[in-house]
Structures are given as structure tokens and as C-alpha cells.
Computed example of a mutant assay.
Amino acid sequence: MSRKAIPAEAFDHGDPRRYSRGCRCDICKKGITAETRRRRYLRATGRALLTTPDRAAAHVESLRAAGMTDAQILGEAALAPDTLYRIVRRSGGLLRKTEARILAIRPARAAGRGSGANVPALGTVRRLRALAADGWTATELGRQAGKHKQFIVHLQNMDEGGQVRMWVADYVRRLQDELAGLAPEDFIAPTLVKRTRQRASAKNWASSAYWDSEDFDDPDFTPALRDDLNVLRLGSHRRREIQHLASFHVPEHEIADRLGMARAYVHDLIRDMGKAA
């Protein structure tokens, strides 16, 4: 998927990035001229235009710990998502002017948005894995949460016994609550939804239907996956999945497609559950 380019209007007149995007006003011409002279001076005096990403990465972590979302950081520093994630991974060099923009962001702007205390990662990891098993791609989860998709992938693949910041656990909990019962196909291409479910299934990640809200954070609870169920328990589990989705008024045909069941079977079960109620 192509990334939308940052327009010239996102930068002030006099910023070389506005000039490189087509603005040819006198202020921008002076700005690019000054930038060119600065680069020549740095080269002539043996000072590199690039630096390591370490200071910028550490500052990004402090902003996140203060509760600032990646989307806010990207907006404040006028960065592309891939650039931010490369910085966090401390990969490659970084332009000094880019470092300066990141270091200029003050954590105080994110005050009150969340706690930087560490909490067990178990519930966070399980919730994100369940959403993947439901069909939600990391890209869409990142968009919904205002995070880069690679940060979502990192959380999904981390050790359940690890720790995350409290603000991370809080927004993942809210995200899972908001998406519960929604059909990913209404937001994402069905082929991507199917592929995401297949990948989650290959990793034995349990979908949301396997969990009650309090189970995610319970280290003593282990969801019973299909491979572990005998025939009788499988029937009970399927009824629970169908009942969960039907309670959110998900259409019968979508329930059948999502769970890989025959539509007639789903229809009959919902009808029988209605009679028993």
C-alpha cells in the first residue's frame, strides 16, 4: 500500500522541504539557498550531516512513556511512519535536522494522556492476538490506535511474561472493546482479513470468541483451541462463538464465513438457541 505524500503546505515558507515540494516563493528560495550553504560548510569543516539515531530514539521512547501516540509524534516532527520506526529500531543514520525536530518535541504536550508505569504484558498480547485471529490486520489496528503497524506486530509477538507501559495496556484494552463484534471486512479487504486469520491460526492464536473480558489478564486461563477439543466440547465451543457474534447482531452469513461453518448449520444453531432462551 502506497503512503500518502506529505504536501508542501505541511511546512512553513523558508523550510527546504517546502521548496523540494514545489514552492518557489522568495522565502523558500532563500531557505534552500541557506540550507545548501550550511551543508557545504559542514562538509568543508569535516562535520557530518548524519548522526546516529540513538538520542532521537531515546526521546521517542520518553514521549511514548508520557502517553504521546505515534501519530502525534509524526505530526509534531513531520516524519513519515517508516522513518519513525527506523529511528526506534536505531537503524542507519539520521539527518541532524531531523534529530533536531524530534528533540524539540516536549513530553509535556502529552501530559495526562497515560501512565508510564510498567504492567504485565499478558492481557495486551492476548488482546492483540485475538484481534488478529478475528481478522484485523496490524496495519488497521495501528491506524485505529494511532500507532505504526510494526509497533502492533512487536506487541503481538512479544513474550507474554514481559511488561508494557500502562498507557499501552490501556489503549489496547480500549481498542479491543471498541472492535468487539465488528466485522473486519467492513474496514479491510476480505482477502487481507482471510490471510490475517490464517496466519493467526497457524500461530494458534485464539479469536475473541474464546475469551471473556476478564480472561485476557488471567495467567491461569488458557483458551481451548480446536485441536485440543473432543467432538462434544467442539460443539459447545462453536455454540459459544456463534452466540457471541450473534449478540452483536452480526448477520448469520458473516458468522458462517468468519468461523468456516456451513450457513445452514449456523442458521439452525441460532434458531435453536432462540427457542431455548
Rank of each mutant, 00 (worst) to 15 (best):
R3W: 13
K4P: 08
A8W: 00
A8Y: 00
E9F: 04
F11A: 02
D12S: 13
R17V: 01
Y19C: 02
R21H: 01
T36G: 13
R37Y: 10
R40N: 12
R47E: 13
A48R: 13
L49N: 14
D54Y: 12
A56I: 08
A57D: 02
H59D: 13
V60I: 15
E61H: 06
L63Y: 05
T69W: 10
T69F: 08
I73G: 11
G75Y: 11
A78E: 14
A80Y: 15
A80L: 13
R89W: 10
A100D: 15
A104G: 14
R106W: 13
A108H: 12
A110S: 07
G112V: 04
A117I: 06
V119I: 03
G123L: 01
G123H: 02
L128M: 07
L131M: 11
L131S: 04
D134W: 00
D134A: 05
T137P: 08
A138R: 03
A145E: 06
H148A: 11
K149G: 07
K149N: 07
Q150W: 02
D159C: 01
G161M: 00
Q163H: 13
M166E: 15
V168D: 07
Y171W: 10
Y171I: 08
V172W: 00
R173D: 14
R174M: 09
L175A: 00
A183T: 05
E185K: 00
E185D: 12
F187L: 09
I188P: 04
A189R: 10
P190E: 08
S201C: 08
S201P: 04
W205E: 07
W205D: 04
A206C: 05
S207Y: 04
D212E: 15
D218L: 02
D220C: 05
D228G: 10
R233M: 12
L234E: 15
L234M: 12
L234W: 12
E241S: 14
Q243C: 07
Q243D: 15
H244I: 04
L245E: 09
S247P: 02
E254K: 14
I255Y: 03
D257I: 05
R263T: 15
R263F: 09
V266Q: 06
D268G: 03
L269H: 12
D272G: 12
